[in-house]
Design a protein around this nucleic acid. Structure first.
Length: 614
DNA sequence: GGGCCCGCAGGG
DNA sequence: CCCTGCGGGCCC
């Protein structure tokens, strides 16, 4: 037979159908039609000579995939079930972290006791029965990609498959949307589920609970959001204020370097763990992972950089998960409101935030990294929201000619976290690894490398990453927490007051009376477009005699005498207007609405200061 | 999906 | 106080 070269072991384990071109994925041959039979359930063609158990009839049989799904009734859905079951446990507020860990262990291991006998697993959802193996390499999924049809493949295998021009699922032949084919996202929940299952199987329950509790990340929802600092009328209408900052939940100062530990998390007492995901940058900020809500780099040019965000704002970025190349800030013309300009229009230099990153590189500081779903060209970005991916170190930085021709600052980030990355099912975090070879370095200028011992480094004895030198001293204030009940009693003060002052200044500038210089009351707008309070204008001309003027036109007297009144701002004649002056109602409404806003702001800030005083 | 607009925070 | 920034929502 054509599959003779395949060993009997492979024949038993590899159960693959024919691919889109009719090639058997087991023997790699193109078998004649007579050797091919379609499955009656999924219609997938199979090379019958490569099946471990050939069908008794050619036309009325179920392929191994469909048999399996009928027996287990959870072939593709298993992944979904497992994930949704884990999510349900995670979101159950009635459970403690330890209880959650026990439940998770039961779920993936099938028993509250560790079952070390692999062959006798009676797990409700046992992932080691092959259902979570990659259909290509037949190994447990590594960096799993889940297709819309619900089938899972290792990232590397999937890339190879797509690289061959195959745009259908290797398992069920469903079309893979081009968006997913070109930019697949790692199913990090599945990766974590596999990790938890591995732990539950290979370790005793105690250690499993310890590690799983520590490692179990969660999605933090908007419900967790406290009172927002400031919302505009417009934002309130939309249901969510733009750039409202909210309270900071953790007790670190904004220039805190390194992981956010349980001791800085009085609310949950667990710290920020790898995989924690928030719906947007504002929420991410509230948990201290990355403070700036727009800027990608957090830091100070004379102190160092504490964190960066990968959001796909710069096309030069290159993401390989455990390491990535980051582009500095600046060089884009964002004048006006062009927040969207991705083009570089001038050179970047090592100043401001770029210098902050360079200091972190030279000192070997730990830099927190968050990835946003907006990072479109990365396998490692989350599907939704913003995710904390752990600690990285900047090993080198340099300048190069960017894609748009102007010079950009470049940084090589390499992961060095004690917790595994969200996309792997590895049980442990990073070990020191050799630096990747960077092609662009040969044309780079201003190359900066660390000379001395890094502040954050791997300790061989303890087997973990830690501060080898004391972390840099903070220059900022941290939040203050009530030691009795753990509530935050003072946080980064929202600039409400300042904003209300700003708005008041704006109102005065736009809607100030040209006589009394105060905000217009019953505004009159003259034909020459000057604004006055009704009473101010009336007072200005009360008892004054009109200037009389003879009006000529083409040498003839048009009107013998006209009473004229000169506008106090421009001397134009407004006598006609003053005969029957009408209050500018529209303007009045606008002024009233703006004044209401400032009152609200002041009200908010008073409330806040009351809170603070409490 | 891109453009526009409003917004806040933080560095300098 | 000014300027910059890898947001976010709405509108087209």
């Amino acid at each position: 037979m054509t599959g003779n070269s395949i060993t009997s072991r492979s024949n038993q384990t590899m159960q693959l159908p024919c691919d889109y071109d009719g090639h058997c994925m087991v023997c790699k041959q193109n078998p004649p039609n007579i050797e091919i039979s379609p499955c009656r359930t999924c219609a997938t063609p199979w090379h019958i000579l490569c099946l471990p158990v050939p069908p008794t009839t050619f036309f009325d049989w179920d392929c191994p995939d469909c048999c399996q799904s009928q027996q287990n009734n959870h072939a593709p859905p298993l992944t979904e079930n497992l994930i949704s079951a884990i999510q349900a446990i995670q979101s159950d507020i009635s459970l403690t972290e330890v209880e959650k860990a026990i439940k998770r262990q039961k779920l993936v291991g099938g028993s509250s006791k560790p079952h070390l006998d692999n062959n006798k697993s009676n797990g409700m959802l046992d992932i080691f029965d092959g259902t979570l193996n990659c259909s290509f390499c037949m190994q447990l999924l590594e960096r799993p990609i889940t297709t819309p049809c619900g089938h899972n493949f290792c990232l590397r295998c999937f890339e190879k498959w797509i690289g061959k021009g195959k745009h259908v699922c290797a398992k069920c032949r469903s079309t893979i949307p081009s968006k997913i084919a070109s930019h697949p996202r790692i199913n990090s929940q599945l990766a974590i589920a596999i990790r938890l299952a591995k732990l539950a199987r290979s370790e005793g329950i105690r250690e499993s609970i310890d590690i799983a509790t520590k490692n179990a990340p969660c999605f933090m929802h908007n419900d967790d959001r406290p009172n927002t600092a400031f919302t505009t009328e417009r934002a309130k209408k939309a249901g969510k204020a733009n750039a409202c900052c909210g309270k900071i939940f953790v007790t670190i100062p904004s220039d805190h370097f390194g992981p956010i530990l349980a001791e800085n998390d009085p609310i949950r007492n667990r710290g920020v763990v790898v995989g924690d995901t928030w719906s947007d940058r504002m929420e991410c900020r509230q948990w201290g992972a990355h403070f700036p809500h727009v800027a990608g780099i957090a830091g100070q040019s004379n102190h160092g950089s504490q964190s960066v965000a990968l959001s796909g704002g710069y096309i030069d970025d290159e993401d390989h998960g455990e390491w990535f190349l980051y582009t500095g800030s600046g060089g884009r013309d964002l004048s006006g409101n062009k927040r969207i300009n991705k083009q570089h229009s001038f050179d970047q230099t090592f100043d401001y935030m770029n210098q902050a990153l360079r200091i972190s590189c030279l000192k070997g500081y730990p830099v927190r990294v968050v990835r946003s779903h907006k990072e479109k060209c990365s396998f490692y970005a989350p599907e939704v929201g913003v995710r904390y991916d752990g600690i990285y170190r900047i090993e080198k930085c340099w300048r190069k000619n960017g894609i748009h021709g102007h010079k950009v600052c470049r940084y090589l980030f390499v992961r060095c976290d004690n917790e595994p990355a969200p996309w792997t099912s590895d049980l442990y975090g990073d070990r020191p690894r050799p630096l990747p070879k960077i092609k662009e370095l040969k044309d780079a200028i201003d190359i900066t490398e660390r000379k001395g011992v890094p502040s954050w480094d791997y300790d061989e004895e303890k087997g973990c990453w830690l501060w080898k030198k004391p972390p840099p001293k903070s220059k900022k204030k941290a939040t203050i927490v009530n030691s009795v009940d753990g509530t935050i009693i003072r946080d980064f003060k929202p600039k409400t007051k300042k904003v209300s002052l700003k708005l008041k200044a704006r109102i005065l500038k736009e809607f100030g009376c040209n006589i009394c210089r105060k905000v217009l009351v019953l505004p009159l707008t003259t034909p020459c477009a000057h604004n006055f309070c009704k009473t101010c204008l009336e007072d200005a001309f009360s008892g004054q005699s009109y200037t009389k003027k003879r009006i000529y036109e083409n040498g003839r007297t048009l009107r013998s005498l006209k009473n004229i009144i000169r506008c106090p701002s421009c001397s134009n004649d407004i006598a006609d207007f003053l005969q029957n002056p009408q209050v500018n109602r529209e303007m009045m409404d606008v002024i009233e609405s703006l004044q209401r806003q400032t009152e609200q702001m002041d009200g908010n800030s008073e409330e806040l200061s009351d809170d603070n005083a409490a």
